[in-house]
Design a protein around this nucleic acid. Sequence first.
DNA 1: ACCTGAACACCGTTCAAGT
DNA 2: ACCTGAACACCGTTCAAGT
Lengths: 233, 233
Amino acid sequence: MATRRQRTERRADALSKERIVAAAVELLDAAGEGGLTFRVLTERLETGPGAIYWHVANKGELLVAATDAVVAAALAGEPAGSPHSPRDGIRAVALGLFDAIDEHPWLTTQLSVQLSRNPRGPVTPRIFESIGRQVRALGVPEGDWFTATSVLVHYILGAAGQNAANGRALGPDVDRAEFLDAVSTAWEDLDPDEYPFARAVADQMREHDDRAQFLAGIDLVLIGITARHRLGG
Amino acid sequence: MATRRQRTERRADALSKERIVAAAVELLDAAGEGGLTFRVLTERLETGPGAIYWHVANKGELLVAATDAVVAAALAGEPAGSPHSPRDGIRAVALGLFDAIDEHPWLTTQLSVQLSRNPRGPVTPRIFESIGRQVRALGVPEGDWFTATSVLVHYILGAAGQNAANGRALGPDVDRAEFLDAVSTAWEDLDPDEYPFARAVADQMREHDDRAQFLAGIDLVLIGITARHRLGG
DNA sequence: ACCTGAACACCGTTCAAGT
DNA sequence: ACCTGAACACCGTTCAAGT
């Protein structure tokens, strides 16, 4: 039986789930959550909706795939046996996610939705694994693994999401200093009796360094994680 | 000039923003995010869309108001000068939010969206205030207020959201034990080389007590917050 | 097996018109 | 001042039909 190869590809730029996901990420990056639409996706890919639905079950699956693609890329820089200490490993993973969320602000909502409603999808285990591995390497007793990892994951995603919003909240014409100043002012104008703390803390928001602030939070958690069993928890 | 009262109300059940928001909360509770629609809202309130738009600018404002109403109610139990210690105060606020999110799972997404995209809205300062006040009472140095409060807030909302999803993820016909078992099994089936941590931790998910787990995370953070300046931060 | 594109049911929002 | 309801532009999804 002679070897018979497929003579020609259907078309040079054949559709595939990967190409669709890549286009989806581009649209999300360019215009946020609302920018991903089957109409503009079909235009961009020069097809009809039916073609996309042949590769992808629905919009939800597309969003999961887009999220996972971006998160996987962000975490790819951290191979299993990295040279640095577990603490530095955690900082590296945290900053990787921080930057990814800053570059792709639509991740904020997607990660929140997928961590809660979609724990069997690819995203949740991927994130827990990358953090949890370092927690284990830290020497935390097994009973604390889940708690410690949860605290880290939720803080990382929450704080990174808040930071990302500062960056582009009101479009590219409003820069972040301007935006933070407006928020800070709004908090200072709150009722003094009802919001003493918010008012007191408002000024710190104005000129803080986000990465430093973010890492300070990570360190606070790391102290809690290690102090706990060092004290004999 | 004789006292002349308004003779009659327009209609006994006149529309108001409060009534609209209350109806919105009911719809969200009954059918989740997708359950809130201007069509069903107008049916429920026996009006047309124009009537609602006279009281509310758009759907976003309606969601902000619904979120704030529920969160405010959840935090109302904690007046300024409560009798207990700051630690117990934090636990109480945390559990109040935990339960609110459990009862209104749609809060998970809304709080994530509003904390990041909407820091000038009513919800973000309200939550930061209720936690931050107790952090201050803990004796934390002022420079750490924002960091400590952020860690607590993000952990509380993230972990509570994940818990709420366990409750009703697949409708009322699937109970939580069944759901957790399915997630746990899915994690155990992951690739052993890529996901050693997720596999190791999967079994703990199966029969854990959520409130205990949640409070363990709070305590871990509290240790970090206090150990930090006790060690001379 | 893979793609086309018209059609369907639905959505948030607007607005001229009424009281 | 407050409400009515038809209309608009848009959305995700389906499906008979093509190659």
